[in-house]
């Protein structure tokens, strides 16, 4: 049936993600450089990977519910980028043997990225509270995306110089994507903040709800501290100023009041402390895969 099309256009596929969808780290040298603790490296990849996975899942909840079809397509693009980052990072964690308790349940046929995504328990997830909070309305979704993408972009920009070449490569690929995500969210925050009275009210409420979620984002865990010293990771405290400056700039222009910056607290999400909202999200994410632990998809 496709022959009829061949004359009409070149054979080159036009979707961004190809039809290959191979193993994320296929063909990559995954040797860990000397002086880096593989267990720490894997744990750090879970921190970064789980943030991406959980935020991708949150954004996917907008599909078939977004305002206007153009925005549907844009949100799907962001979610696909984040899903791609999650796959690479979880595969990197698996490649250094960090699999938590997932292998107790997942059979050999299941690749590392899926063992980690589908067969870890709640307390093994390392994402921050920032990404795990529910979407709320479109304003809250875009304010949260703005904040999360700004933080992540600042971290990834620095991670391009990581001593782990795999992590550095993942970061380099992610930087362009994250800049796009941040800018998309910023355009919306601007339009909602400076749009109608109602959108302004909603955007302000969104900022007021999202800002407190920054409390445990900038406190390094022991793993992050050790890896920062080893030249592998980025201490989140180091990006605080940059993040604050970008967010202030956007909110100011959006005629929104910048909420009080929350006091730092000890890491919670990063050490596996999560609320019922993540439990629910994981229930949906993992349910089918767990019903068929010996299946291949």
């Amino acid at each position: 049936m496709y022959e009829a099309l061949d004359h009409a256009h070149g054979g080159e596929g036009h979707w961004a993600f190809g039809t290959g969808f191979d193993e994320p780290l296929a063909g990559v040298d995954t040797t860990v450089p000397d002086g880096i603790d593989p267990a720490d490296l894997g744990e750090y990849c879970l921190v970064l990977g789980d943030d991406a996975l959980v935020l991708a899942q949150r954004l996917t909840q907008w599909i078939t519910a977004a305002p206007e079809l153009e925005e549907e397509v844009a949100i799907a693009n962001v979610a696909l980028d984040l899903l791609g980052q999650a796959r690479l990072l979880l595969a990197r964690a698996g490649s250094v043997g960090v699999l938590g308790r997932s292998r107790d349940r997942a059979t050999e046929s299941i690749p590392d990225e899926d063992a980690l995504a589908y067969f870890r328990d709640l307390d093994e997830f390392r994402n921050s509270g920032l990404v795990e909070a529910p979407n709320g309305d479109f304003a809250r979704t875009m304010v949260r995306l703005l904040v999360a993408a700004t933080v992540r972009l600042a971290v990834f920009t620095r991670l391009r110089g990581s001593r782990d070449p795999v992590l550095a490569a993942i970061a380099a690929k992610g930087v362009n994507e994250l800049a796009y995500h941040r800018d998309h969210a910023a355009r919306w925050v601007l339009r909602l903040g400076d749009g109608t009275a109602e959108s302004h009210r909603r955007a302000q409420a969104a900022a007021d709800t999202v800002w407190p979620l920054l409390a445990d984002v900038f406190t390094a865990t022991d793993v992050e501290r050790r890896l920062t010293e080893a030249g592998v990771a980025v201490d989140p405290a180091d990006v605080r100023e940059e993040v604050s400056s970008v967010l202030t700039q956007v909110l100011d222009q959006a005629t929104l009041r910048v909420p009080a910056w929350p006091a730092d607290t000890a890491p919670r999400g990063r050490v596996g402390e999560h609320g019922p909202e993540l439990a629910e999200l994981l229930g949906t994410l993992q349910g089918l895969a767990r019903q068929h632990p010996a299946a291949t998809w």
Partner: peptide
């Protein structure tokens, strides 16, 4: 205009 050019990128080039 600004939103249009970005939406065009998302929809018609799927970000190539």
């Amino acid at each position: 205009d600004e939103m249009a050019v970005h939406a065009a990128r998302d929809v018609y080039t799927r970000r190539n």
